[in-house]
Computed example of a mutant assay.
Amino acid sequence: MGQVGCLLIHGFTGGAYEVNPLARYLREHTDWIVSVPVLPGHGRTLNLRDTNADEWVAFAEEELRRLWLYCDEVYVIGFSMGGLIATHLAIHYPVSKLVLLSAAALYINTRQIFKDLNELAGNMVRRKLHENEWFGHYKYKLINTPLKATFEFRKIAKRTIPLLEKINIPTFIAQGQMDGIVPPKAARYVYDRIGTYEKKLYLSKTSKHLICYAADCDKLFHEIAFFLKCTDYPDDG
């Protein structure tokens, strides 16, 4: 095998930080070229008013083509909305393997959100709001995400989800069972509909939506690296 490239795509309103822990792990344990681009309008500072779904997908396509300038084989990893974009790439380009992390095939996990909101309310009463990681992470996003951008995200979902059966490459699907954004059943939804027979489903009992920051993320990263390196990965049924 020649040079391998790995493209990691973050989620809606997110940035490279969402998948950077996995990117670091892959760089430390392989000699692959690992690319973690930031989609237009995304990142630590959001500017989503003047971007759209077509631009996000086109940007990911350009990054994939750029990797092929240096690589003989490319794997694609997508988190949340990035999982939908990664699926698009795997359908339309000769990607070798696909990894979907908390892929936004279904959304929202109402039960977990209410649980998080109850925790948030308790912290407000105890005046510990600044200590609540969930609040700090999503407050900025809620304020700075225009409704138009949400419709653009849904465009990607509507275009991509019906095409899952066209995926014919080995695929690893990971999902946190405490996810408050994408319901855990989304992973099984994708697993059951994806076209390939070479597929692996991984569930994290401790992870919320940001699966690359879960308590058991090292185990997840090991499983992903093994899956990508393995030349014969059986269907786990």
Rank of each mutant, 00 (worst) to 15 (best):
Lys148Arg: 15
Asn132Tyr: 05
Ile169Tyr: 08
Tyr140Asn: 14
Gln112Ile: 07
Pro170Asn: 11
Arg159Asn: 02
Thr171Ser: 09
Leu98Ile: 03
Pro162Ser: 02
Tyr138Thr: 05
Arg159Ala: 06
Glu119Tyr: 09
Ile173Phe: 00
Ala104Trp: 02
Thr87Glu: 10
Gly136Ser: 15
His137Asn: 13
Phe172Cys: 03
Gly122Pro: 01
Arg127Gly: 14
Lys155Gly: 07
Lys155Met: 03
Asn109Ile: 11
Asn118Ser: 13
Met178Val: 04
Lys128Pro: 05
Gln112Tyr: 11
Leu147Ile: 13
Leu98Trp: 00
Gly122Phe: 05
Glu165Met: 04
Lys155Ile: 02
Ile108His: 15
Ile91Val: 13
Ser102Phe: 05
Leu106Thr: 02
Leu147Cys: 04
Lys115Pro: 03
Lys158Cys: 05
Met178Trp: 07
Met124Val: 15
Ile156Leu: 02
Leu101Val: 08
Lys115Leu: 10
Ile85Val: 05
Lys115Ala: 12
Ala174Gln: 02
Lys148Ala: 12
Pro170Phe: 12
Lys148Glu: 10
Lys155Cys: 09
Thr145Cys: 15
Ala174Arg: 08
Thr110Gln: 09
Gly122Val: 08
Phe135Asp: 14
Ile108Asn: 13
Ile169Ser: 12
His130Asp: 13
Arg126His: 11
Pro170Asp: 04
Ala103His: 09
Asn118Phe: 07
Pro162Val: 05
His88Met: 04
His88Ile: 06
Arg154Val: 06
Pro146Gln: 07
Phe151Gln: 11
